[in-house]
Design a protein around this nucleic acid. Sequence first.
DNA 1: CTGTATCCTCATTGATACTG
DNA 2: CAGTATCAATGAGGATACAG
Lengths: 134, 134
Amino acid sequence: MVTLEKPADSHAHGPAFNVYASECPARMVLDRVGDKWALLVLDRLRHDVVRFNALKRDIHGISQKVLSQVLKNLERDGLVSRQAFATVPVTVEYTLTPLGTTLTQAVAGLIHWAEKNMPAIQAAQAAYDAKHTP
Amino acid sequence: MVTLEKPADSHAHGPAFNVYASECPARMVLDRVGDKWALLVLDRLRHDVVRFNALKRDIHGISQKVLSQVLKNLERDGLVSRQAFATVPVTVEYTLTPLGTTLTQAVAGLIHWAEKNMPAIQAAQAAYDAKHTP
DNA sequence: CTGTATCCTCATTGATACTG
DNA sequence: CAGTATCAATGAGGATACAG
């Protein structure tokens, strides 16, 4: 199995990366974290139990269709749990599972990186743009 | 500014998330990390100085066009540095900048999460599929 | 309220070809 | 070798309408 932590192994020879293998950790990470909406849903659930329409309202710009898809995927992955109540009309509540909670914690490290280094990146972009658009 | 770390603030009232604002850390993270190819390039450069075609060879499945785009973006962000040598034919070497190195380290935390929790996710998926395809 | 189904559009990508 | 340019195809995502 190819991992991002042990590039020395991966780079030894030949086609080193197999992002298409479902067991590849890189692919796993990308599938969970590379999805903007999923990340926002996960975060919105971090401290609250939230209903479908509340999620739709809070996560500005998400469509009903995409929210529904994202929630279904997250539930399938065991990151979010869904509980329906037979009220009328129906009520559905979404919560983070313990697994989902650990993911949001791991993601926090990246967010921290982003916050810390945003100025550096913006400076780099400005410098690059200045040099490349005379 | 809305952050993923302080959802209490974000959730106080109204449309809480502004993923479209360029200053939003969530958006930043997504822009850098949500790109499969960028992540693989970053990783490939983690311990080596690599030439364009070597990257293309090693990162199986990437096209010349996309690799070129990705490298340009990474260079603009100050994560990767490009050095051309006036040999014939031309030689171009890519390296991680110090900033790029810190990003790969932050990403490692997520990869670690993925490796550790992959079994749990796969189990959850299996359970879900079993329950939803009778 | 909580979704599913349909259509449609726009952006990303791959394939291909060409240049410095 | 290291790209850029062009074009077609694929698919994600939005709008809308409707159902349980």
